[in-house]
Nucleic acid binder design. Sequence first.
DNA 1: GAAATTTTTTATGCAATTCGAAATGAAAAA
DNA 2: TTTTTCATTTCGAATTGCATAAAAAATTTC
Lengths: 224, 224
Amino acid sequence: MQRHILLIEDEINIAKFVELELKHENFLVTVSHDGREGAELALANDYDLMLIDVMLPNLNGLEICRRIRKKKETPIILITARDAIIDRVSGLEAGADDYVVKPFAIEELLARIRAILRRVERPQTAIVDLKINHLTIDQKAHQVFYLDKEILLTKTEYDLLVYFMENNNIVLTRDIILEKVWGYETEVETNVVDVYIRHLRRKLPEEIASLIETVRGVGYVMRT
Amino acid sequence: MQRHILLIEDEINIAKFVELELKHENFLVTVSHDGREGAELALANDYDLMLIDVMLPNLNGLEICRRIRKKKETPIILITARDAIIDRVSGLEAGADDYVVKPFAIEELLARIRAILRRVERPQTAIVDLKINHLTIDQKAHQVFYLDKEILLTKTEYDLLVYFMENNNIVLTRDIILEKVWGYETEVETNVVDVYIRHLRRKLPEEIASLIETVRGVGYVMRT
DNA sequence: GAAATTTTTTATGCAATTCGAAATGAAAAA
DNA sequence: TTTTTCATTTCGAATTGCATAAAAAATTTC
């Protein structure tokens, strides 16, 4: 099965070299030489893995990484300059899965790509379905069921529900919810969380809806 | 907070060097030069992280890694020989979290250790439940129980009770309580603290309420 | 590019909570 | 015993926080 890799690298020679090697290994490769363009590609399409240089024109690799992570789980390998240790660490914090340091041996890059693809595929089959009461979430299929009857949720509603189920019996503040589900960093004054709680409570059957409790002055909690 | 690292490395010089560097970074370090011994240590004790060389006498690093993973989640960083690409890949498959390649710059190793510890620590927000007598507070769930029966408190009442329980046997003045629980800086003349003490005493069972004593002329104290 | 859907913002009513003031009660000082 | 000081209790007005609806904006779908 052919894998599709996105390569964002502005140094033409390196890009060309890596692209050829990857194709030789039977990967399908898309190359971008620009940060902003690369980020758009990354968000618009579904790749199996992304290779992103940290130093890029217009938008740097770390920032691209963060933006992608808000939307996708696609594995990311960063390409950093030699000895940029700080970058390595912040790269992992930005959500990258691994990194290589320039100049790198192509075999090392290939080994890391294979390792990550293997790692990613393994636990994908291991995601245990979330289940509370008669409500099940099939995370792979992105579907929610109540007693075998599907409940249709929008993406945000779904994410919110998953977040609550993953943190049952823990009171979650609006700030935390905003940060984790919406990805906002800022403390914008908005009641969008309340509105979505409302949506969930309306769409879910009473039995489940009643588990989502309001903790006045603090936040919300799903009690089981 | 000091972290405990287990280092399994048979090359004496490297082991000594790494040990010194780690200690310099304020880690507590345990060293083993033998595969079998190292594995036993790893399984018998709780370390925060393990550094394991792949090439070891008696029992190799990959095998140690696999055995540990059957029992524990402790982060593992493998140390592999130069260009042993196969090992890198199989290392990740054996359950290692990361690896460094000999010869490595000590800063790189430190950076990886920090990155992993940081990653692992996130969800470690384990707040220990407060407990006095038969009264328990589940801070994550924001719930108060007396003998398994929930006591419903408003946010301020809850905050006040938590503050008292965190400072039991310490006399707290009204000013301090106002500042810590209400967040007032100003010394407004208000008896709001008194009023809330009253609320608590009324809602809590006699056995607990009687622990909140008045220290006339000074403030209040929760004696246990 | 129009229609439908989803997301975000804005507005409003309701209800729980908070707070301050005043009355009452209890302890210490005179 | 009386006076004074400090603590307790009660109660209602003001505030705050939440639920909900609906409009506006953004995004997706056809």
